Every structure is written in C-alpha cells, then in structure tokens.
Simulated assay, not measured.
Amino acid sequence: MLFLLVDDSIGVGGVSGEVYVLYRQWYGQLTAGHFPFGDPTWQYPPGAGVVILSPALLPFLTFFQAFVGLTLAADALITVALVRAGSRPGGSAAGVWAWVGGLPLLLHLPYGRYDVLVTAPAVAALLCLRRTPRLSGALAGVGALVKVWPALALIGTPRGRTTRASWTAALGAAAALLAVLALGFSHTLDFLRQQGSRGVQIESLGGTALQLAHLLAHWPGRVVYRYGAMEFTGPYVSSVAGLALALTALAFCWLLLWRVRARRWTAATPADAALCAVLLFTVTSRVISPQYLVWLLGLAAVCLTSRQTSQRPVALLMLPAAALSALAFPTLYDQVMAGTPVGTSLMVLRNALLLAAALLSCRRLWTSTTVPSAVSGPR
C-alpha cells in the first residue's frame, strides 16, 4: 500500500495528490489562523482542521511523510484494539482479519485520505462502550466534529445509564472542541456554505441511475468537476438529488423507529446498529466516495469481533464492495467518468452490493432486537 501510494500510477493516479496539494494547502491556511473560506472543496466540520494540522506533531518529517505516518499509527491502533476485542470471552478474531485483509483491497487510497484517522475514534468508541460509556461518548463526539458519521456509533447504545452517559459525553466533547476551534480560528463554520449546492456524484446510487439513463436512453447530461468531485449536470439531476435527501430522511426515521421498537440488546448490538446506520446514510447519499468503504470496513470489523453479531453476512459483503470500489477508483475511473459500458457496469455492481447489504443489515438488525428471543435470536 505504501509503495502504491508513492508510485501512484494505477489508473488515473492522483491519489497521493490529495495530501500533497489539497491537505497541504489547507494546512497552510489553518496555520495562518483561519479555516478555508470560499473554498468549495472544504466541506468538513471544523474538527477536520485538527486532523489536517496533526502532521505538525512530527516536524522532522515532510507534511506528506508525517500525514502518512500518523495514518499508519491509526491503522496500527485499530488493529491492536480489534485483536484485544477478539480475545475477550465471546470474542472472535474474524474482526481483525476483516480489517487487515479488507483495507488493502482499497489499494493505497486509505493512506491518501484522512478517513483511517476518523475511523479510529469510532472503532474505539464502540469497543469501549460497555466498560467506559463516557469515554466512548467523548470519542464519538470528537469524531463527529471531524466527519459527522462517528456520531452514529452511539445510535445503538443500550437504554438507560449507558445512553445518558455516552450521549451527554459526546455532546460535551463536541461542544468543547468546537468552542476551542471557534476561539482559535476564524471562519470555523464556513464549510456549511459548501454543502447545500452539492450535486449528484457519479459514484452514488443516483449517479449510477443517471449513468444507466445516459448509456441506455441517451440522457443528455454530462460530467463536470465541482466541489472536489465529479458530478452530473443536466435534466433531472436536481430531482435525483432531492430524492436522495428524502431517502436519507426516511433512513433516519427508520433508525428512530428501530430504536423505539428494539427490546433486546446484546454486546454486539451497538456495533451492529452503527454499521446499519452508516450503510443507510451511505447508500442514500448524493456522494459515495471510495474512501467511505474505510468507514464500513472499520465498523464491519468491530461487528465481527463478537460472536453475537447479527451482521456477519453484511460485514463480509464489505470485502467485495471494497474491491469493486478500488476498481472504480483509481483503476478504471476514466471509464466510470466516461460512462462506458465497463465503467457503468462496475458502478452498478458496487452500488447494488451496497444497497443489498444495507437492506440485509436493516432486516437482521430488526429481527435480532425486536422479535422475541423465543422466536428469533441473533444469527
């Protein structure tokens, strides 16, 4: 993975350029005392600034070397945490093998993005929830201020003291970090301006539908570079984007209904619910960047550390989904952008796999927690 990152010659290339150019540019702005403003590529909560500034901890290395070194350290910490979780009573080594075997399926992409650094606190939050719910909540809160989705690590916390302690700690940690960043930097919330105008990325489910329309029905839209991604423009794009937002809202409502109806919690339920929630928000998103699979692999690995998980087949589906994502970007991204039969077929396969995994995850989470144990238990 490190060799591929330095060589960066597979497919369209440019994976390491995210760190060399974009992250380094943001680093310069942050060290000047302000968050990127008026920058359509800066779409992240202010906690992301902490990650971008973190290479300053290793001043004897270049920015690129320090960033990759810290990402490797986060990868190692996740691995150690999964090993320890799998060695507990009722645990399984399948989780750590899913992580160390699954991450390289994304080729060098995980080390050229900051998603491993975001996945680490989410994994830690889930693994320490039972013993130290306040620490779990604080980790999830900090992670949420970096990239939002780690907040979903708490969606499946058992009712009562654990939920109160973890959610309160999450809110407190996020608020404290936000206050520090707001006091230390200007334009802290400028990222909000860049979210509303985002369109439909070519790798999303909606983008795949438009690709099929272009290939089979000669839909006249085209692909343009906007907001740091390749997006569709043309007729019906705004309708597809609106539908995606509506489906995201529907997914959130389903999760709330599940939480109200859930009656049985096992040690695996919080991780199972987190994987289900992130899958739902991934497949309904207007954007499905390949690095999203880093999140899903991390959560799937946590599920597999428990023999009680209901998500085993869902977690295993993340492996071929990761391999297909690496084929799409960077390996055959030129064909994906061009909407060729090969590129379109690849995206149909990857997104159909993610959609099937999300639906299966919902069904298994629902039946394992809402159906009385005498009728159906965790499988």
Rank of each mutant, 00 (worst) to 15 (best):
D75L: 11
V51E: 10
V200F: 02
R264Y: 15
Y225R: 10
L77K: 00
S136Y: 09
T71E: 10
L103R: 06
V146Y: 07
P133W: 07
T340Y: 10
V348K: 00
L154G: 00
V278S: 00
V180G: 09
H214Q: 12
A98E: 02
R379L: 12
A138P: 07
G91C: 13
H108Y: 14
R84T: 04
L183N: 08
S310W: 02
A151M: 11
L215K: 00
V237A: 06
T269I: 00
H218F: 10
V142A: 15
A358T: 04
G156D: 00
H108V: 12
S186D: 15
V68R: 05
R198M: 10
W26N: 08
F37T: 12
V302S: 01
Y114Q: 08
G13S: 13
L327W: 07
L293C: 08
T369Y: 01
L205N: 11
Q201D: 15
G339Y: 04
S289Y: 10
R159G: 14
T188E: 13
G206I: 08
T305P: 01
T309A: 02
L22M: 14
L212K: 01
F37G: 05
Y23Q: 14
A98V: 15
H108T: 11
L354V: 08
L304M: 14
Y114N: 12
S325N: 07
L2H: 12
F185K: 10
T188P: 03
Y20A: 13
L181F: 12
L346D: 05
V15K: 00
L319V: 08
Y111E: 03
H187P: 03
W219P: 01
S166N: 10
T119D: 01
Y111V: 12
S204C: 10
A93L: 15
G49I: 06
V223H: 05
A209Q: 02
A338M: 09
V237D: 07
W97Y: 15
L257T: 13
A213E: 14
V12D: 04
V68T: 14
P378L: 07
Q65A: 15
L126G: 00
T367Y: 03
S9H: 15
P158G: 09
F329K: 03
D272E: 08
R312W: 15
W254K: 04
